[in-house]
Amino acid sequence: METLTVKIESMKDVIASAVDAAKRAEAGEAVEARSILSFDSWEAMHRTLAPKRTEIVMAMAGRGSLTVREVAKLVTRDIKNVHGDLDMLAKSGVIDKTENGFAFPYDRIHFEFDMEAAA
């Protein structure tokens, strides 16, 4: 099962993770390949993966490439609004734009983040 992991982390953390993985790979350690989508804040993640967009993504999971019309039918929403959401999701890297439409090449989404009280 292919999983997209969604995280909230700073660019500094993203770079540190990449450097650490590169060092471990150079040392001959096995490094697990993971598909990760990082956002720098809860607000940025929520703007991109708002409830209706998350519904679209989950409806697309495991179905291959779908046209805008097919996605709109799956989520019983207006084609124009779904098209706008699909474009935004593709520009954000959540889904892929394909020759025949759009695809979410994962079976599931795993959200991985902590929320703390404001200081």
Rank of each mutant, 00 (worst) to 15 (best):
5 T>L: 10
5 T>R: 14
6 V>R: 00
6 V>L: 01
7 K>L: 07
8 I>Y: 02
10 S>P: 03
10 S>A: 11
11 M>H: 10
13 D>S: 15
15 I>L: 14
16 A>E: 15
16 A>Q: 15
16 A>V: 13
17 S>I: 02
19 V>D: 06
20 D>K: 12
20 D>G: 10
21 A>L: 03
21 A>F: 02
22 A>V: 06
22 A>D: 10
24 R>L: 12
24 R>H: 13
27 A>R: 14
27 A>S: 12
29 E>P: 08
29 E>T: 09
30 A>R: 12
30 A>M: 11
30 A>Y: 15
30 A>G: 10
30 A>F: 14
32 E>F: 07
32 E>C: 07
33 A>T: 10
33 A>C: 08
33 A>V: 11
35 S>P: 02
35 S>D: 15
36 I>R: 07
37 L>Y: 04
37 L>N: 02
38 S>I: 02
39 F>P: 00
41 S>D: 06
43 E>G: 03
44 A>R: 09
44 A>F: 02
45 M>W: 01
45 M>C: 12
46 H>G: 00
46 H>W: 02
48 T>Q: 09
49 L>E: 01
50 A>V: 01
51 P>V: 03
51 P>N: 07
52 K>V: 09
52 K>N: 07
53 R>G: 01
54 T>K: 08
55 E>M: 11
55 E>W: 04
57 V>G: 01
59 A>S: 14
60 M>L: 09
61 A>S: 14
62 G>I: 08
62 G>D: 12
63 R>K: 15
64 G>P: 03
64 G>K: 06
65 S>N: 05
67 T>V: 06
68 V>S: 09
69 R>K: 15
71 V>T: 09
73 K>L: 09
74 L>A: 11
74 L>Y: 04
77 R>M: 14
78 D>W: 07
80 K>T: 13
80 K>P: 01
82 V>L: 05
85 D>F: 05
87 D>I: 09
88 M>G: 04
90 A>K: 03
91 K>A: 11
91 K>I: 05
92 S>I: 00
93 G>I: 03
95 I>T: 02
96 D>N: 13
96 D>A: 12
98 T>I: 09
100 N>C: 07
101 G>K: 03
107 D>Y: 10
107 D>P: 00
107 D>M: 10
108 R>H: 12
110 H>W: 11
110 H>I: 07
110 H>G: 11
113 F>A: 13
114 D>E: 15
115 M>F: 11
115 M>S: 09
116 E>A: 10
117 A>G: 09
